[in-house]
Write a protein that binds this DNA or RNA. Structure first.
Length: 345
DNA sequence: CATACGTGGAT
DNA sequence: TATCCAAGTAT
C-alpha cells in the first residue's frame, strides 16, 4: 500500500466545491459520470492495464497531442522499447527516431532521461505518489497526478485542458489557477481516482468539447450551469509567416541530409533536407510546395531539385543517408512529410 | 506570469 | 484559406 501525502489532496477531503454546492450533488455527479464512462469509454491501448511504464508513456505522448495522433506511435514505441530498462539503455538518437513526427521532441529527451533515473536510482521501480513522480524530468503537476491516480490509485485530481473546460461549464464561470485544482480535487471520486480522472477528460474530449458541446449526450447536464457554448476568451496569437526552401539531392538510393545544430532551440540534433538561402526561394522550379506550421511560424515550403550546392546554408553537417536507414534517423516532421509527399518514405 | 516548443485534424 | 487547439512542461 502506498503512502499518501496529505498535501497532495487535502483540499478535496472536505468535498467543498463551488461547482457542485452540496455533497449530495457531488455524489450524483460522480455516479452519473462514471456510469457514462464505463459504458462509453474509448478502447485505447493504454487502458489495457495499469502498468506504470505504459501509463507514463501514454501520458507523455498525450501532452498537447491528440489521441488519434498518439495511438500509432504508442504501439511502435512500446514494441521498440518494451520496458523502462530497454528505454534507459537505448541511445537518445533511437528514442528520437521513434518519436520523429510526433512533435515536442523535448518530451522524448526527458522521457529518456527519466528512464535512466528510474533504472539507476530507483531500480526500475516507479514512485507511486504524485509528489515523487513530479521530481522526474518531463513530469509536471498534471502528469504526476495522472500516473499516480491511474497506475497507483492515489486520490489526486488532474487538471488538463479538458478538465478545465468541464469545470468551467459546470460552474458557469471562469475558474483559474489554483482554484481549478481545488475544484477538481473536491469533485474527484477518491475511491476510483484513476477512472474518475479519465472520465472527466473523456467527457471533455468527446462531449463537452470546445465550440458546440454535445449537451444532449451529456451524462451530467443536470449538474451543469452552462449547457451550451461558453464565451471564448480567445487570445488569438498571430502566426508569423515565412518562406523556406529545401533541396532534394538524391544519388543511387541515398539522400543528402543535414543535422540541425545540437544546441539549436528548435529540434536540436534532428535531421532534415538541406535548406537553401532565403533569396533562393522562387528561383528554381519546385518539386513540391506545401504549408507547414511549426509552433509560432507558418511556413510556405518549397522543395527544389538538386541545384548549385553553394546556396546550401549548412552543407558541412550533411551526410548521404541510405534510403533504408531513414526510419532509424530522427527526422523532423517536415522532412518526413516532404519525403512522404514525394513517395520516398 | 508569458513564452516557446511540433504537428495535423477540426471548424 | 485562416484559425483553433490537443491527456503540458520548462524556463
Amino acid at each position: 500500500m502506498h503512502t499518501m501525502r496529505k498535501s497532495a489532496y487535502k483540499s478535496g477531503v472536505a468535498g467543498k466545491s463551488n461547482a457542485l454546492k452540496s455533497a449530495a450533488r457531488a455524489r450524483r455527479f460522480r455516479r452519473r459520470l462514471l456510469a457514462w464512462y464505463y459504458a462509453h469509454k474509448r478502447d485505447l491501448p493504454w487502458r489495457e492495464n495499469r502498468d506504470p511504464y505504459r501509463i507514463w508513456l501514454s501520458e507523455i505522448m498525450l501532452q498537447q497531442t491528440r489521441v488519434a495522433a498518439v495511438v500509432g506511435y504508442y504501439a511502435k514505441f512500446l514494441q521498440r522499447f518494451p520496458s523502462v530498462e530497454k528505454l534507459a539503455a537505448a541511445r537518445e538518437e533511437s528514442v528520437l527516431a521513434a518519436w520523429s513526427g510526433l512533435g515536442y521532441y523535448r518530451r522524448a529527451r526527458m522521457l529518456h532521461a527519466a528512464a535512466k533515473v528510474l533504472v539507476k536510482a530507483h531500480g526500475g521501480i516507479f514512485p507511486n505518489t504524485s509528489e515523487d513522480l513530479k521530481k522526474l524530468p518531463g513530469i509536471g503537476r498534471y502528469t504526476a497526478a495522472a500516473i499516480a491516480s491511474i497506475a497507483f490509485a492515489q486520490p489526486v485530481a488532474v487538471v488538463d485542458g479538458n478538465v478545465e473546460r468541464v469545470l468551467q461549464r459546470i460552474a458557469g464561470r471562469e475558474i483559474s489557477g489554483e482554484h481549478l485544482w481545488e475544484e477538481a480535487q473536491a469533485i474527484l471520486d477518491p475511491s476510483q481516482p484513476g477512472e474518475f480522472n479519465q472520465a472527466m477528460m473523456e467527457l471533455g474530449a468527446t462531449v463537452c468539447v470546445p465550440g458546440q458541446p454535445l449537451c444532449h449526450s451529456c451524462p451530467v447536464h443536470s449538474s451543469c450551469a452552462t449547457r451550451g457554448p461558453r464565451q471564448s476568451a480567445g487570445k488569438a496569437l498571430r502566426l508569423r509567416k515565412r518562406e523556406i526552401s529545401y533541396m532534394l539531392r538524391r544519388k543511387s538510393g541515398s539522400f543528402f541530409l543535414v543535422q540541425r545544430a545540437k544546441n539549436a532551440k528548435l529540434m536540436p540534433g534532428m535531421w532534415e533536407l538541406p535548406e537553401l538561402a532565403d533569396k533562393q526561394f522562387g528561383k528554381s522550379k519546385a518539386l513540391l510546395v506545401l504549408r507547414h506550421s511549426i509552433t509560432v511560424t507558418d511556413y510556405r515550403v518549397k522543395v527544389v531539385e538538386d541545384i548549385t550546392p553553394e546556396v546550401v546554408l549548412n552543407p558541412s553537417t550533411g551526410k548521404w543517408i541510405q534510403e533504408g536507414r531513414l526510419a532509424q534517423l530522427p527526422l523532423t516532421g517536415l522532412t518526413r512529410k516532404i519525403l512522404r509527399s514525394l513517395k520516398m518514405l
